[in-house]
């Protein structure tokens, strides 16, 4: 099964190395992963992953269930710890050093499949909390920023409700606003619409399209191929812990190279 996946992606994406840190941050890639591997016990979830994402680039990751998509994207803000290779996000290498992890997390927002809003805080408090704690913003400033992003996701009027009072689509939009409040440079999405009823999928996708237009760097695990076509610069196909194929959306969908990709696209399209 794994034999044809051996062709590790070489591609044009090379890690740019600079001696001057500050320049790397500005000019370097948003994310660069080099021969990264991860194991759960004996089971290797990610096998020698190489991936570079430029600032402003929008990448959609797809693949069958269990292929390691969530694990990959969760490694980028160290919700999961990789064992081999290295991951550099926004010029900071992810190591055991919590300071670096925090520096990365400050610049990387994440949206989860199951929203993970804090049920004991109102919509506004959900958005304000991290600003106050991580960025040490004043209450007033944090509220202003929160309202700006709540308006952007079009639910400013729900500010004083608790997450339990909102529909799934509204909750996910709050989750997006909450992540945006830290004004991250990179946004990670892990199947943001797959826990939603069909009629709510679009309101969330619209929000994400809007975000893409602002030039945000986005890594998005999703099976919404329409969305991928519309906003992605690149689509990555993963299987069995490896990146099997990556291409621009047009070529990816119309002319997939690998058998597994073809089979997968045949299933979901």
């Amino acid at each position: 099964m794994f034999w044809f996946c051996r062709t590790a992606v070489k591609g044009p994406y090379r890690v740019q190395k600079g001696n001057d840190m500050s320049e790397t941050v500005a000019a370097g890639p948003a994310v660069s992963i080099r021969s990264m591997s991860k194991w759960y016990g004996d089971f290797q979830v990610l096998k020698n992953i190489n991936l570079t994402v430029k600032f402003g680039e929008r990448v959609v990751i797809c693949g069958p269930s269990g292929s390691g998509k969530s694990t990959l994207i969760r490694c980028l803000n160290r919700l999961e710890v990789h064992q081999d290779g290295d991951i550099v996000v926004n010029g900071v290498e992810l190591t055991m050093d919590m300071k670096k992890v925090e520096a990365v997390r400050r610049e990387v927002g994440m949206v989860f499949q199951s929203f993970n809003l804090f049920p004991h805080l109102t919509v506004l408090q959900n958005c304000v909390l991290a600003q106050r704690r991580a960025l040490k913003r004043s209450k007033q400033e944090a509220t202003e920023v929160a309202m700006r992003f709540l308006t952007q996701v079009r639910i400013p009027e729900q500010r004083d409700k608790f997450p339990g009072q909102l529909s799934g689509g509204q909750q996910q939009r709050v989750a997006i606003a909450r992540a945006l409040c830290l004004e991250p440079k990179i946004m990670l999405f892990d199947e943001p619409t797959s826990a939603l009823d069909p009629e709510m999928v679009n309101e969330v996708l619209d929000t994400m399209v809007g975000m893409a237009k602002t030039g945000m760097t986005m890594l998005c695990v999703t099976h919404e191929m329409g969305f991928a076509r519309q906003v992605a610069d690149r689509v990555i196909f993963m299987d069995a812990g490896q990146i099997v194929e990556q291409n621009d959306p047009e070529s990816f969908f119309t002319n997939p190279q690998h058998e597994r990709t073809k089979a997968f696209l045949g299933q979901i399209l």
Partner: peptide, 15 residues
């Protein structure tokens, strides 16, 4: 408490 809560908070850079 579901781990998702802790992960979400971690991703928001809370200590």
């Amino acid at each position: 408490i579901p781990t998702g809560q802790i992960e979400a908070a971690g991703s928001l850079c809370l200590t």
